[in-house]
Design a protein around this nucleic acid. Structure first.
Lengths: 368, 368
DNA sequence: GTGAAAGCGCTAACAC
DNA sequence: GTGTTAGCGCTTTCAC
């Protein structure tokens, strides 16, 4: 493997000057490539990032060296020097939720093309984890950060501001966004559901949500019930049928349990809005088991338009938000911001809206 | 902010010597902290990573400087120097699947404590994405890599080997693992399902799977049908009822569609194994819609033990694997390997096994 | 079109 | 206990 000295002593440094031993890790470095190709490290760097600035002959020579060594540039070293890490931070309550997973998926799809990498952190709805996760995320020097819903700790918020990177809030649309926001109003979701059920002529209208906990809270879900309750109140209807039951995250079994509890307490309930389709599906199943006909005896609707809702019998009426598209839009805004050069971009506030999907689980729908 | 010269010229360099201007990014560096605290950068570094080696008085002084500046160490710079990135790579087919999300979740839970970060990449079942994703992952110099199922491209495999880091295969248990493997045999899942249905006395037994595609293939699902078919053949039963339909990833609607197709082609089918609970649930719903009684007319079972299976009516018989625990075990093995010092650890091959969960969707179960 | 020098922000190794 | 020196593997900047 010793390179035979060339006949003339060349002034280019390539194989000669940069004669340091190869790295201890065994993984080839840019230096190994430069030596093998007989060019400087800078030329190797150019072949990788700006190949057009390199003569085709040189480029091929370098490329062969790269291939034969199986060289993969170390991005950490590159970042340190270029001050661009290629990381985008994403902070979620959980990944074990199809909608949040869809957001992450949508963002990734878009960022992938530009070689950005998503750094995902999740709090499991635990506000105490926020600060830890935020610190860990910021230590990787993301070029921007995407968060879902508001932060709930001042400390986490302070860190976020101090980081001085673009912030995008997704899947929730605060009236006063930190900077950019793409999403919809959870509060409006609740109001929309209530208005819909009221318009259908129901008067004993309930809801199924999680109990807000000390540390573990589904803030978005809670906002939905809040909107729901206020609309009920605005129409002079009772909130007695609104049930907060169990802990976040809500799931199918949450819906079954909560529905059972609601039927036990208020057997005369006519219509129910569950803050998530997961709960709504559980509620429908519970009704089936109890011989309570849906929608003849009880109408049920949910939120999220999860695939399962389309499949059950009767199909679930729900409120739809396209989370994957939300992720994709977020990805595009991100690329836009990062290309435009950081803070030049005026804060965006994009409401992707909601749509009510009428299916057969609510009485009085054409399809039911 | 100018520091007044102290009465004596001290030999410690702290505030004096390290007098370079603060960084261009605006974010404080270790140098800013050291200056403010009047100590060397090394002392700051120690306060962060090995506080016990620093005098309490010094430590507090430094901590105050850290807090007042809002300093968050740059891990990229740290990695470069220490050669420990704190990254674990995870390569999945998709995150939009509760079981894979659960694996990621389980790993994260464990690694979190040690400040390791999971770097997730997904291929969307596209084997062509493998190489790209693998390269991007390795460029971040993960200390270990976790992959689900085998890699399908030689190029990706070569890169993996060249990276020379611990490899753990999860959720699939190849007979010849690359190195470590934690999981179960998908092939056995299929055989178990077939044996179960055969033992129940059925003879016209079908399956619902995806069609293997050119680029998009659910290899794990395909292995499950393969095992299923072989067991059928071993008992001299026909494979005519085994249906490969639609594209991966399978979903609820895949199950509905496939079940409809199966009933159309072979109305006399007695029992069906769907390669995923998602499909199985879709199949049950389709039967309900068609007035085909489950399990009286057709028995249905799935794989994965998704929560929804427990909730539907009748509850779904399935094969259970605890994916979150799988993730947690993977996390612990990872910590073990990384602590033991890389390659010292003998390759582990851990079969977490399967369990058949009998519920009411198969005829002849006590509960049905 | 290519190269040399300098340095990104941190820590390993060794002084004292 | 704390400081100094010397890099980690890249890219920026500027020279030629």
């Amino acid at each position: 493997m010793s390179s035979s000295p060339s006949s003339s002593s060349r002034s280019r440094d390539g194989a000669g000057t940069d004669a340091k031993a190869s790295s201890a890790t065994g993984r080839p470095t840019i230096r190994d490539v430069s030596r093998l190709a007989g060019v400087s490290r800078m030329t190797v760097s150019r072949v990788i990032s700006t190949p057009d600035l390199v003569l085709p002959a040189t480029r091929e020579k370098v490329q062969r060296a790269i291939d034969s060594l199986g060289y993969v540039p170390d991005r950490a070293a590159g970042s340190l020097s270029s001050r661009k890490t290629g990381f985008i931070a994403l902070m979620l309550p959980t990944l074990t939720n199809a909608n949040f997973a869809a957001v992450a998926h949508g963002i990734t799809e878009v960022l992938r093309e530009r070689d950005y990498h998503l750094l995902v952190a999740y709090t499991d709805y635990d506000t105490a984890e926020e600060e830890r996760q935020m610190r860990a995320l910021l230590a990787r020097r993301p070029e921007a950060i995407v968060i879902t819903g508001a932060l709930h700790r001042r400390s986490a918020n302070r860190m976020l501001l101090a980081a001085d990177i673009p912030v995008i809030e997704v899947a929730n649309l605060p009236s006063q966004p930190i900077e950019h926001a793409i999403g919809f109003s959870n509060y409006e979701v609740g109001r929309t559901a209530a208005r819909y059920l009221i318009a259908k002529g129901f008067t004993r209208i309930g809801a199924l949500a999680a109990t807000p906990g000390e540390t573990v809270t589904d803030h978005r879900g809670e906002e939905r019930v809040r909107g729901f309750e206020e609309e009920l109140a605005a129409s002079g209807l009772s909130k007695d049928y609104v049930l907060r039951h169990g802990q976040a995250p809500v799931s199918f079994s949450h819906g079954s349990d909560a529905m059972a509890a609601l039927l036990a307490a208020h057997g005369d309930v006519e219509a129910v809005f569950a803050v998530s389709d997961m709960s709504a599906v559980g509620a429908v199943m519970e009704c089936q088991r109890r011989g309570v006909a849906v929608p003849e005896q009880v109408s049920i609707m949910g939120f999220g338009d999860f695939e399962i809702g389309r499949e059950i019998n009767p199909p679930l009426t729900t409120i739809h938000v396209d989370f994957r598209a939300l992720g994709q839009r977020t990805g595009h805004l991100l690329l836009d911001i990062l290309a435009t050069g950081a803070q030049e971009r005026a804060p965006q506030r994009i409401d992707v809206g909601l749509s009510l999907v009428e299916r057969a689980s609510v009485k009085g729908t054409k399809s039911s």
